[in-house]
Deep mutational scan, measured.
Amino acid sequence: TKKDTKLYCICKTPYDESKFYIGCDRCQNWYHGRCVGILQSEAELIDEYVCPQCQST
């Protein structure tokens, strides 16, 4: 049987260590910077990140 692979981001793909991720400070989920429109250089300046799903609630 195929091992359950945890899926990340709004694009629902397995973790890829070569890509940049940003963690939501509300739901603790991880998102590709590219998918949520945040560059790694911008993320370093953000104190708290809230993902699109949490922003809409």
Rank of each mutant, 00 (worst) to 15 (best):
T57M: 03
D47C: 12
F20E: 13
L45P: 05
K12Y: 09
L7W: 09
Y15I: 11
I22H: 02
Y21E: 06
I10G: 04
P52G: 13
C35E: 01
I38W: 04
S18R: 06
E17N: 08
G37C: 04
C54E: 02
T5A: 07
Q53R: 11
V36T: 03
N29F: 05
K6I: 11
C54M: 02
T13R: 07
C54K: 03
V36L: 09
I22Q: 02
G33K: 06
Q28W: 06
V50E: 15
I22C: 01
V50M: 08
Y31V: 05
H32Y: 00
A43L: 09
S56F: 11
Q40W: 04
C24V: 01
I22G: 02
T13L: 05
D4R: 04
G23F: 09
P14K: 10
K12W: 03
E17S: 11
E17P: 08
K6H: 12
N29C: 05
T5P: 11
Y15M: 13
R34L: 13
D4I: 08
C35K: 01
N29L: 07
I10Q: 04
D16I: 03
Y21T: 05
Y49L: 05
A43P: 08
V36K: 03
G23I: 03
Q40V: 07
C24S: 00
C51Q: 00
W30R: 15
D4V: 07
G37M: 05
K6N: 12
C35A: 01
Y21F: 08
C9G: 02
Y31Q: 02
H32N: 01
Q40K: 07
V50R: 09
P14G: 04
V36A: 03
D16L: 03
D4P: 10
T13G: 03
I46L: 12
H32M: 00
I38C: 03
P52I: 10
D25K: 15
Y31C: 07
T57S: 15
C11R: 01
T5S: 11
L7K: 07
Y31M: 04
E48Q: 08
L7G: 13
Q55L: 08
G37Q: 07
Q53T: 15
L45N: 13
L39D: 11
T57H: 08
I10R: 05
K6W: 03
L7C: 11
S56G: 07
G23R: 09
K19N: 15
E44W: 04
C9F: 01
G37N: 08
C11K: 01
S41T: 15
K12E: 12
C54D: 01
C11L: 01
Y49Q: 03
L7M: 10
Q55M: 07
R26A: 10
I46F: 08
E48D: 07
D16W: 02
Q40I: 04
D25S: 15
I38S: 03
P14I: 07
P52H: 11
C54P: 03
I46Q: 11
Y31F: 14
E17F: 12
N29G: 11
I22P: 01
S41M: 09
T57V: 12
P14W: 04
L7Q: 14
D4H: 07
C27E: 02
G23H: 14
D47Y: 08
Y8E: 15
T57N: 06
S41K: 13
Y8G: 14
K19H: 14
I38K: 06
L45I: 09
K12V: 01
Q40G: 11
A43I: 14
V50H: 05
